[in-house]
Design a protein around this nucleic acid. Structure first.
Lengths: 128, 128, 128, 128
DNA sequence: GTGGTCTAGACCACA
DNA sequence: GTGGTCTAGACCACT
């Protein structure tokens, strides 16, 4: 995995894990890789890996059993709402930014259709 | 003006100024407030205000006449392309995030229409 | 039984057993459940169950007869002093914490009476 | 300052700072020592010091201005309720432990008076 | 100057 | 084995 320097690595790893939950790659109750293994898999320092799980736990997406490991929350609703909530806030922020630039809803949708077309064949497969 | 802690203040102020240019509140050739005044208007540190103009200059959107002050670029095309460029990168990033969550183009547009409806009477253009 | 994550499970189980001795639910000389059974009863890892007995033995509250099992100490004085000792250390720690917050003895007692009133019908002795 | 090994240092430092807020040594809006200075004052690693402020911020007791420093929350109610809340939870836990041992309210208060008397002359002055 | 992030490596308690 | 804590020191962005 390659990291953008503009965003903290731990956030990028968190996003990656969230994405894997949302897409069903990781399911409620699943055990997550150990801190050390995550560090290897994502090529980060174990401390950074630990931070990832700590932050996810704060968000209620993970929980930890002492000495056993870290697990995806067992509440499937939480995962579902995670997707919805994330999407909603992204859309909201996007609309706010675009209207701030002076675009109306019609123009915004037009732009999305246009942009979508350009990249449809190129960047579709998520590399992860 | 209230600042998000997630984004550097100088970027937020830059965005605000850009928005004012794009929407016509600030026009090509207009003189911008002095560093000191900008600092007061936006309630930021003078160092931060100076940085704002420095970065805007780097982007070619402003220029400084020594002893006179800082001005909006006199090239109207630059402002126009600024709007287009900004919009394009926002749209691109947005689409990338949404597809990462597993939404396809159709769903994305659907969500925008839905979200757009809720906020139809927009809280637009606060010049602070 | 539900465990707080702030405190090691083995300590919580130890406290539970001690409480049962102090309240007379377990009496001097009584046989304690086997490690395996304890693990099941308390829904803990067998290693953790073993540790519980090991630590209790270190404190002299239990003893083990090889091949027979683990038993509560036969010395009734020990149980009695266990109660006194535990209480004393709890009280000591409590007073230290409260005085640290700036409360004097009078206020502390006031608070206990007030709090005690609210919970007068106690949720006592769940043996699980 | 001397640290107990049973409790994480960062929690002990947090408690110390909270105590200073509750007792009025640190007042709402006050700037807290910088991460580096705190590290020196409390003889801890700067990372640990940073963690202290981060956790306090999570609890809403502090806030951070980027590049400026960390400050005590400006809401005096929050400090007041901090004291009350802390005290209440300590008292509650204490009562629960004591009733678990089989003491009733009267005995508990008796013990506090007795214990208070013993240590009144010895351990009264809070060090730090 | 400030706080935030990251790496490296160690030690400990817990299950 | 697991996660949690701590130290050491570095680098960065922000004000």
């Amino acid at each position: 995995m390659k990291y953008e320097s503009s965003k903290p690595i731990y956030l990028q790893v968190m996003d990656s894990l969230k994405q894997r939950m949302v897409t069903g790659d990781l399911r409620p109750g699943d055990q997550l890789p150990s801190v050390r293994l995550l560090a290897i898999e994502y090529d980060i320092n174990p401390n950074t890996a630990a931070r990832v799980y700590k932050e996810l736990e704060l968000e209620g997406i993970c929980f930890t059993k002492r000495g056993e490991g870290t697990f995806v929350t067992e509440d499937p609703d939480l995962i579902r709402s995670l997707k919805e909530q994330t999407a909603k806030s992204i859309v909201k922020k996007f609309i706010k930014e675009m209207t701030g630039l002076g675009y109306d809803k019609f123009e915004i949708i037009q732009k999305i259709q246009k942009e979508g077309d350009e990249n449809d064949s190129i960047e579709n497969g998520k590399t992860d």
